Amino acid sequence: MEDKRRILEMVREGVLSPEEALELLAVLEEGPRPEAPAASPAPGHPQIRVLATGANLEVRGLGGLAEPEAEGGALLREGEGYVYRVAFGEGALRVPEGAWVVLEARGSNVELSRVALKGRALGANLEGEALVGLDLEVVGGNLEASLLLREGGHRLSVRAGNAELRFLPGSDLLLEAHVRLGQVEAEGLWRPVAGPGSFRGFLGEGRAQLTARVVMGNLELEA
């Protein structure tokens, strides 16, 4: 229901045409497709849930940090992990480097560095630096990120928006990308096998696997 409401808002705002909105709603009715299993949190790292609404937020992974630290918002212990909430303001969160951040962002701008990113962004813009894991759904927003993926399964689903992914030296993965309404462009050191609206390429031996699907938007890949 939230997805449909946001799509209608995007039509009113002129972001989507009525025809594009109908196409996107039809895809939403199809339901999720099976994907590769997502990577698991690294041993020894706590899982941190981040709930951001109408906020500007920075999340930074730091080496040698044992427990998360926050400025602005509210950070609470939750079971074996943590939950951090920030709404309609500024926030800064420091977490152990490589920890999984489970993000629920609505109408927010979020910058993340040196963490593994998981979750959902609705009407949000995300920037990532040296992300070591990805399991993310974006609806009505954009993602620009550099990644260092070496093992495990990773996923990206963009319902309406654009994604720019740059893979850092040392990445070792098989990438499968599919774009329904838009374009996929790949540059760099790939060993590619491409087709209309799709791209399949290797970096290294392909130990990690990333599946990227874009319903409406553009996908840029650089290695």
Rank of each mutant, 00 (worst) to 15 (best):
R33A: 05
R33F: 05
P34A: 08
P34C: 04
A36H: 07
P37Q: 06
P37L: 07
A38V: 07
P41V: 08
P41Y: 07
A42N: 02
P43Q: 05
P43E: 07
G44L: 09
P46S: 09
P46R: 02
P46D: 04
Q47M: 10
Q47E: 13
R49Y: 08
V50I: 11
G54P: 03
N56C: 11
N56H: 15
N56I: 12
E58H: 15
R60P: 02
L62T: 03
L62Y: 07
G63F: 09
E67L: 15
E67I: 13
P68L: 12
P68F: 09
E69H: 15
A70D: 02
A74Y: 12
A74V: 15
E78Y: 01
E78T: 03
G79L: 03
G79C: 05
E80A: 14
E80Q: 14
Y82L: 00
V83D: 02
V83A: 14
V86I: 15
A87T: 14
A87D: 09
G89P: 05
L93A: 09
V95K: 00
P96H: 06
G98I: 09
G98S: 12
A99Y: 01
A99E: 00
V101W: 00
L103R: 00
E104A: 11
G107A: 10
G107L: 05
S108W: 05
E111S: 13
L112S: 03
R114M: 01
V115N: 00
K118N: 04
G119Q: 10
R120Q: 10
R120D: 08
A121L: 13
L122Y: 11
G123M: 08
G123R: 02
L126E: 08
E127C: 01
E129I: 09
L131Y: 09
G133P: 03
L136C: 04
E137G: 00
V138G: 07
V139T: 09
G140M: 06
